[in-house]
Design a protein around this nucleic acid. Structure first.
Length: 425
RNA sequence: GGAGGAAUGGCAGAGUGGUCGAAUGCGGCGGUCUUGAAAACCGUUGUACGGCAACGUACCGGGGGUUCGAAUCCCUCUUCCUCCGCCA
């Protein structure tokens, strides 16, 4: 969330920039500022009463030592009213504080100045295109047909065991998953990311820290008995490593990568786009997360984009494009996002396989993540960034569809050492 | 799951009702000395909120309570350790 300091400093500018996200924050921000004024007054009053009580207590202590019980009792009588007053002031202050937080949580992150105007994904801006379209056989099959044909992805079996959106990968299909995971992790490690294997369930505080809670609660699977959430992305546990942490400036940038399964309820998104691997309740993903100095975070964002692009390129020619999200399509917590899409040749559509974002200090404020700034001589919120590198199912869908031949599905050369086979037939 | 013990500053570790934000040691930072370094010595060294500042307030695992006053007493939760049971 935005900090009070940010809001008080650049109110007009923030309101203007939020409009790019189609968000009118005028009322909320007004309320925030009003509540903050109230809160500060309450604190001043409470602090001074508290100081008074403290000095009386000290006095009583001394009187007791001098065995002046009577005088001590007189002093004691003064305190009860004071105590009530303090309690009430502190209660009010806590209430006001909660009001402020509840309001702040409703305000999305400020978009970066380069974010294009726009309402929906139609208005996203194409940055680059790459790869090449393969020559497909006549009547190319969509990936769900190919999965069936070669007996490598079984959706019905998943239905039986669990339900829709939980496919079973079999044989070379399973091996291909494992190969991709290892390939991605190796590429990330080569680029300086440290591998993390995090918990797959997180508590409420972690969910709040990265912004899934409170608003996106319905998107996560929830384990009631233990009050835990299944992670929708590795971003959640990996970023929360740094919740309530003060880093040294020299630690930056922090670069972590993690493979995890991801669990998403995807409530309300049934329909045409959910066939096959397009949208699942459980899928595998390798994530990259960076924590960076505010002055260098956009440099890091570019570096992450280049890195992800490099991985896709190594999948020999998978057609891809990179788009910069417009204000209307930009996520609630993001300041700037690039989406990576690969072409699904048989479905004839683009599938999102990675979303690389800079959250600036929006997450680190929630996380209470700080670093000691050498120049400013105090603790500052660093910027957090993350992206997929990469999400598996849609990559698999695109690989199967683009690389289908009369003889089977060919495997990109870069994966051979991971798969141990060159063709699925 | 059952029985017991513990949780204090970056780390180690004192403190069991009064002036304790907290002794001491180590580490970190600054300085003296030195050609430089080490050693020695001196100083400094948590976080948050409020305040122009002086300074005030809060924080000794989390939450609540008792008390004029809580690191210290009580309740509760969490985590860790030991023993028993179960177990990949």
């Amino acid at each position: 969330m935005l900090t009070l300091a940010q809001i008080k400093k650049d109110k007009e500018d923030i309101l203007l920039k939020l409009k790019i996200k189609n968000f009118d924050g005028t009322k909320i921000i007004k309320k925030v500022i009003k509540a903050d004024d109230m809160r500060r007054n309450l604190q001043q009053e409470a602090d001074s009463k508290q100081a008074e009580l403290k000095s009386i207590s000290k006095k009583i202590g001394e009187l007791m030592k001098q065995r002046k019980a009577n005088e001590a009792n007189i002093a004691r009588e003064e305190t009860s009213q004071l105590k009530n007053k303090i309690k009430s002031l502190q209660g009010k202050q806590a209430d006001t504080f909660k009001i402020i937080k509840d309001l702040l949580v409703q305000v999305p992150n400020i978009p970066h100045e380069s974010v294009p105007d726009g309402k929906s994904e139609q208005d996203n801006v194409l940055i680059r295109k790459g790869g090449r379209k393969h020559k497909l056989p006549e009547n190319p099959l969509p990936h769900w047909e190919l999965g069936k044909k070669y007996d490598i992805i079984d959706f019905e079996l998943g239905n039986k065991i669990t339900g829709a959106g939980f496919p079973v990968y079999k044989g070379k299909g399973a091996r291909l998953q494992r190969a991709l995971i290892n390939f991605f992790l190796d590429e990330n490690e080569k680029a300086g990311y440290r591998e993390i294997l995090p918990p797959l369930m997180v508590n409420e505080d972690s969910g709040f820290g990265t912004g899934q809670l409170p608003d996106k609660e319905g998107q996560m699977y929830y384990v009631k008995a233990d009050n835990l959430y299944l992670i929708p992305t590795a971003e959640v546990p990996v970023t929360n490593i740094y919740r309530n942490v003060i880093l040294d400036e020299g630690d930056l940038p922090v670069k972590n990568t993690a493979y995890t399964p991801c669990f998403r309820r995807e409530a309300g998104s049934y329909g045409k786009d959910v066939r096959g691997l397009n949208r699942l309740h459980q899928f595998d993903k390798v994530e990259i997360v960076q924590i960076q100095h505010p002055g260098k975070s956009y440099q890091s964002l570019d570096e992450m984009v280049d890195h992800v692009e490099g991985i896709i390129k190594k999948l020999s020619g998978l057609p891809y494009r990179i788009v910069k999200l417009c204000g209307g399509d930009l996520g609630f917590t993001s300041a700037l996002t690039y989406d990576f899409e690969v072409y699904s040749a048989a479905q004839e559509k683009w599938l999102e396989v990675s979303s690389v974002s800079n959250f600036e200090s929006y997450q680190s404020n929630r996380l209470q993540l700080r670093y000691k700034d050498m120049n400013l001589k105090n603790n500052q919120h660093p910027h957090t960034l993350n992206g997929s590198a990469l999400a598996l199912p849609r990559i698999v869908a695109a690989l199967l569809e683009n690389r289908q031949t009369a003889d089977g599905i060919t495997i990109p050369k870069s994966l051979w050492r991971y798969t141990g086979f060159k063709i699925i037939n």
